[in-house]
């Protein structure tokens, strides 16, 4: 019984760590793709400057928050505690884990009532499309096909180049933040 308890505690901690890390990765990747991709920029064009988007796991995180900058791109905010204009709340860490480990697509997670939207629904629809496009670029096709409803028509060179750029920007962003913290 004791071993079982320790095992489930360890799994629970690992899931929380994974979700927290993925929130950081997805947040930074959204920032990166919003600086690169015309489609995403078109989606974000509907939001006013300083519009904030958050995705948070209930009851107390982890989460991510982004703010729309003057140039139309998203800026990842290291502090996700504030109130955002649009927040997608994920009801439980397990639901966030399933979504961020791509076992359950964003649309399926909505259909399964794993998430609730606080804010304008149309804005949430745009953000879901942006997340889908991001996943299409940064995930291997086989994994992306599980994470989104339909894999978009992206050529392999386009995917590789765009994916590499996003990962590079995410890594740079992580490193510069580490340097600042040091």
């Amino acid at each position: 019984m004791r071993i079982q308890q320790l095992k489930s505690q360890a799994i629970s901690r690992a899931k929380r760590l994974y979700v927290a890390t993925m929130m950081q990765v997805v947040g930074r990747a959204l920032q990166a793709i919003s600086q690169e991709d015309n489609e995403i920029q078109r989606e974000l064009s509907a939001f006013p400057e300083n519009f904030t988007f958050a995705m948070k796991v209930l009851p107390a995180g982890p989460g991510l928050m982004l703010r729309k900058a003057a140039d139309g791109s998203f800026i990842f905010l290291s502090d996700s505690d504030g109130e955002a204009d649009l927040t997608i709340y994920i009801k439980h860490i397990e639901h966030a884990f399933r979504m961020l480990s791509f076992q359950e697509s964003t649309a399926t997670a909505f259909a399964n009532d794993r998430m609730v939207v606080d804010g304008d629904i149309s804005s949430a629809v745009r953000m879901v499309r942006a997340l889908n496009r991001l996943e299409a670029f940064i995930l291997p096709k086989l994994v992306a096909e599980m994470a989104i409803k339909e894999y978009p028509s992206i050529t392999l060179p386009e995917k590789l180049i765009q994916g590499a750029r996003i990962y590079l920007r995410v890594a740079t962003n992580f490193l510069s933040e580490q340097r600042k913290a040091a």
Partner: peptide, 12 residues
């Protein structure tokens, strides 16, 4: 395209 119902449509 921005209507909330579109999320639940089975086809993208």
């Amino acid at each position: 395209m921005d209507d909330g119902s579109i999320i639940f449509n089975p086809a993208e």
